[in-house]
Write a protein that binds this DNA or RNA. Structure first.
Lengths: 193, 193
DNA sequence: TTAATTTTGGAACGTTCATTTCAAATAAAA
DNA sequence: TTTTATTTGAAATGAACGTTCCAAAATTAA
């Protein structure tokens, strides 16, 4: 019977994700990924088919990891507005924990290669869809519990928050002072109350 | 005496900028730039030193072109708030004039290569500085003429609008419906009145 | 222990990369 | 027309790219 895969797939994905996150897709070479994972070239190709496919799996890995952490944060919210607030606190935490922020892997990927590769564009589109649905749910909930105003529809606010988050993550690449990040977050959220 | 440069530098820069804008820095090859400009390889190196330096000149070219068009738009504003509003109208026009938006060259560049190359990071930092100063001026003016509220300082609002614009440009890569873009813009601006 | 199946290591694949080289063509001032 | 400086064309540079190949090592069920 077969020799079984010896490495921990999640650890490898985590290491590859770090490499892609540091340099972006195009600037990350296969040699960088070999170095980052400690795996042999052929093992990478055996297990992940190609650089492009490995990147796609890293995107999914990154999304899942973020989703899990966000879910934990959201449990602490006592109303819709607080949920959105916790979301921004999560991003601020992510952005300030390293001295030089690399931005969001998914936002960076959209900037670098949306509409170039179909598989990547498909991922980005469905990621956007999932994000918008989550936000709309939270905002709708907030409008029900009166923590968020009803000046605009939940879907309109969801799109606004989604766009704001992307800008927030890009801004954080060169603006690192926590006070400034908190100020931006506060202003974004002001609209909802 | 010397043979003089025969090509129009601005046309060449415009063509190279389009190439870089379409594919991003790393995915654009020197061959792509030769094809886009119609110039010979050695002429490009003679006149622009290196791919990196050509890209830097393209960034400046792109910034200047945008600044000129924005200035024209701003002249039509009768108060501070309208100026910011015209700014967003300019971006919506930019985003919807092509069927598939490539985003903002400068925002994309920040995502792809901030904190990788010093010369690029320096450009991005001073571009951010210039943008923030412009926005702060417009908002301060709006607060003087009572078209913008004083709930927060002009510099805090400038940072918020700056971050919002970046998000707006990233969002426009996959969200193309003008109605949605107008809705986002409207919500962003709502904060100021 | 043997047989079956997979992962490994490391070299090699052909391509493409940014950049350089240099002789030939060019054009304006002398 | 000659001189001088520059651009141009086309080929060549060596390094790096993503990917493939295959024999050797590894592992587990039989």
């Amino acid at each position: 019977m077969p020799k079984v895969e010896t490495f921990d797939r999640d650890i490898i994905l985590s290491q590859a994700t770090t490499a892609f996150h540091d340099l972006g897709y195009n600037a990350t070479s296969m040699q960088d990924l070999v170095d980052a994972t400690g795996l042999n070239r052929s093992s990478i190709y055996n297990s992940f088919t190609s650089k492009k496919n490995l990147f796609l799996e890293c995107l999914k890995f990154y999304e899942n990891k973020n989703n899990r952490e966000i879910s934990k944060k959201l449990l602490k919210a006592s109303n819709g507005f607080e949920a959105i607030q916790h979301l921004f606190e999560f991003y601020i935490y992510e952005m300030t924990k390293a001295s030089d922020d690399k931005g969001c892997l998914i936002v960076n990927c959209k900037s670098e290669m949306a509409n170039h590769e179909n598989t990547i564009t498909n991922f980005l589109t469905s990621n956007q869809q999932r994000m918008l649905e989550l936000l709309e749910d939270l905002i709708f909930q907030g409008q029900q519990d009166h923590s968020i105003n009803k000046l605009q529809s939940a879907s309109a606010y969801a799109l606004y928050i989604y766009s704001s988050i992307q800008g927030f993550r890009v801004t954080g690449i060169l603006v690192t002072e926590p006070s400034k990040l908190k100020s931006i977050s506060k202003t974004i959220l002001q609209t909802l109350i």
